[in-house]
Design a protein around this nucleic acid. Structure first.
Lengths: 156, 156
DNA sequence: ATGTTAAAGGTCAAAGAAGGTCATAACGTC
DNA sequence: GACGTTATGACCTTCTTTGACCTTTAACAT
């Protein structure tokens, strides 16, 4: 994890963890200054790491007093999680987005490391892109079935 | 055994032995530098020595902060596992036979109930028979990859 | 109110930093 | 000398980092 993007990600995750409100507000320029990098590097990190699939929302405001606001989306215990996620998945799911979702499931402790690895193997292009008409459609379909399986009460 | 590939192999085996987590992470360029060879020589060693058949898995990442990650598969004790995998290569696997295999894995406590349920879902015709040219071939292929995943030493 | 300005953040393309692939050359062995 | 294995280098893909230029907004001046 020697690279800058990963370090910035780790930093943001940490302060997000520490804040008990579930969000952090900061200024792009300031953060870029602390890491001595181009401001747009912050956008890169946000765009690649703090995605909706992973359970984050980024709001911002330009101009004087502008800011970035990173919100950790709640898990919403009331409604079944598969409904929320089903919307996220839609009818097609790329491998990259599947990885994002998996990361979230891991963080929410919905799955163990081993289970996540199994699902990752299943979602991987090497598994699903061979002799499959439309991999992303199949991937979405299977992921939904997996989520249903995970929510079964009879399994532990 | 004086050749370069063997020396690199020996080195990797040694550090892999020393790490008790079952994997090592390193950079291709750095390693190539230490052995004063072309970077692609590292790929040659990995491709010929650190194969699944020999009990290893190699993951990697490109770009800034890229790396190679060599994972040991823990199945030396039980080469029954390897045999199953070998038989699955290029063959076909029906859902019924997949269920049989799963049952055995459960009995031998290779997988938990939840993991078995997950795999069952993934193997199910409802998952694999839609828009797939040859489901049984795909099922065999995926089962092989799942077994490999299950034997990774870096999980659990 | 209205226009101006400065202070944010946004976008995108190009450069940089890894690892991957493949054809081919060199090496060893029989 | 033929064949299999090893080694190299040119070229490719992926991910990261930077910088130039753009857009939005608050603050200020008139």
């Amino acid at each position: 994890m020697g690279n800058l993007a990963d370090r910035i990600e780790a930093y943001l995750l940490r302060i997000l963890e520490e804040s008990d409100e579930g969000f952090v507000v900061l200024q792009r320029g300031v953060l870029a200054g602390e890491f001595s990098c181009a401001p747009s590097q912050i956008n890169y990190v946000l765009g690649t790491r703090f995605t909706v699939e992973r359970g984050y929302l980024v709001e911002s405001r330009r101009g004087g007093g502008g800011y970035l606001r990173i919100v950790r989306l709640g898990w919403d215990h009331d409604n079944q999680f598969q409904n929320i996620i089903r919307q996220l998945i839609g009818s097609q799911l790329s491998y990259e987005r599947a990885l994002g979702l998996l990361k979230r499931l891991l963080q929410e402790e919905v799955v163990t490391t081993r289970e996540a690895a199994l699902i990752r193997t299943m979602m991987h292009p090497d598994s699903l892109d061979n002799g499959v008409v439309n991999p992303d459609v199949l991937r979405a379909h299977i992921m939904k079935r997996i989520l249903i399986t995970l929510s079964r009460e009879d399994l532990n």
